[in-house]
Structure formats: structure tokens, C-alpha cells
Design a protein around this nucleic acid. Sequence first.
DNA 1: TTGATATTTAAGAAAATACTTAAGTATGAG
DNA 2: CTCATACTTAAGTATTTTCTTAAATATCAA
Lengths: 120, 120
Amino acid sequence: MSLASPAIDTVFAALGDPTRRAIVERLAASEATMSEVAAPFAMSLSAVHQHIALLEGAGIVACEKRGRERWCRLDPRGLERVERWVGERRRLWERRLDALQLYLASGTAGTKTKKKRKRP
Amino acid sequence: MSLASPAIDTVFAALGDPTRRAIVERLAASEATMSEVAAPFAMSLSAVHQHIALLEGAGIVACEKRGRERWCRLDPRGLERVERWVGERRRLWERRLDALQLYLASGTAGTKTKKKRKRP
DNA sequence: TTGATATTTAAGAAAATACTTAAGTATGAG
DNA sequence: CTCATACTTAAGTATTTTCTTAAATATCAA
């Protein structure tokens, strides 16, 4: 029943493949059955099935069986986790850059890192 | 001289590997030389070198040689592209969900998709 | 029931990745 | 110049991933 979200590792690995990103792209437009998803690809249905299973395991896609068809749709929570992971790291680094800018602008550069130095 | 940014494909593939994400994580904290980056990992320096080269090729990390050391730091633009790609798809799908909610709430459900239907 | 459709599963070939070791090159210190 | 440090590069092995074919299973329709 998978209450815990899949390891972020799994999520990134899933998006690492171009076919799977194309599937995400397709499902961003609308939900679709497996055959519909598979149609544009030059590979067997079985291969696409495996890709979808992987996306499902990563929490990026959620599927539901209706009759003999499997309807697939995007699970925004999977993508959200990627955004958060990437965004957090980027902002962490950018804040550091900003701090450096301030530091350099303050004219303290070249003084090793003493507290403040009242100019002599 | 690489004016164009690397294919989004390359960027996602780069982040698909756990070691490389750990490197990103490390560099989000501060820039570092290759040896410093490599230190915590249980693999050869050569392997880490290859990972860093790949991250560089993907535009996620930017390096600069100072003397005999190679200093590496995060290039926020690489991560930003991932955020954008993922965010755009997620929002596209979520907007569609919202529209569906509205549609269902409007009491039009079950009427196939005619324009509006003034209630009879 | 019988046949067609829509997956699903299993097993293995093929291709791509991640690592290793070993042998380079470049730079700094003495 | 000589030695040690800090990477770099090349080549090959190992593992992982992707994709295929073939043989199920499940559902629908007549």
C-alpha cells in the first residue's frame, strides 16, 4: 500500500531516461491507457509497460485498471519532490553566492576573516 | 565554447546517479577541489573525476583550474533547467485537474460535453 | 463458448554505465 | 633538477538497464 514515498533515488533514476520523460510529457496533457501511451514509440508495448511500471514505482505516475485497460495519469507529488530537491540545493548555493557578493562589496575582502575591523 | 546549454537529456541523466547527486549536495555547501569532493566516497579518484566531468558537461557544475587543483562549484543554471522542466509539466497537469474539479462542481457532469446547458 | 483486445510476465540478448587499474601530464616546493 | 601532489587519460571489466520475443492472463463482445 506504499504509504512512504519512494526513495528520491528512484524518482531521479526514473526521470533519467528519455523515453520515460516523453511518457511524463504525454501524461501531462491528459490521462491515457497504456496502448495510447505506447502508440508513438518505436518499441514494443512490453517495453513501454516496463517504463510505466517504473514510473509508477517512483510515484510519478499513478495507474488504475478499468476493465481490460490500464489508465495512467501523472502523480504531481512525484514531480514535486524533484522540484523541491533541486530547488533546495540551488537556493542553498545561490544564497551563499549572494553572501559572498555582500562580503566583497563591504570592502572587507583580503582581511582573512576577522570580525569587523573599524577602519584604522 | 558551449554557448548553447546541454540537452535536457544530459542534465537529467547526470542527476540520475546517486553519487553525482551526492556531489551536487556537497557543492551546494561550498566550492571544493576534486580531491575534497572525492574524499568521502569509497571509490577511486578517477571515478569521481569522471562523475565531475559528466556534471560539468551537463552544465550543473562549473570547474576552474587554479594551479594544480581543480576547483568545482555548482552552476545554478543547470539545476534551474530541471526545476523548470519538471515544474512546467506538473503545473500543466494540475491545471487540468483543477479544471476537472470545476467542471464536476458545475453540475454539468454526465452530459457528454455540450457548451453550457441552461438548467431546464 | 469462441475469438479478439489489452495488458502482463519471464527470460535472455544487447547496449550503456560505473568502476578499476595503470600509466600519463602539470604544478609547486625545496 | 628532483620529488611529491593533484589531477588526467586510456583501456578494460562488471554491473545495470533497456528492449525483445514468446507465452501467459484477463476482459469484452458476439
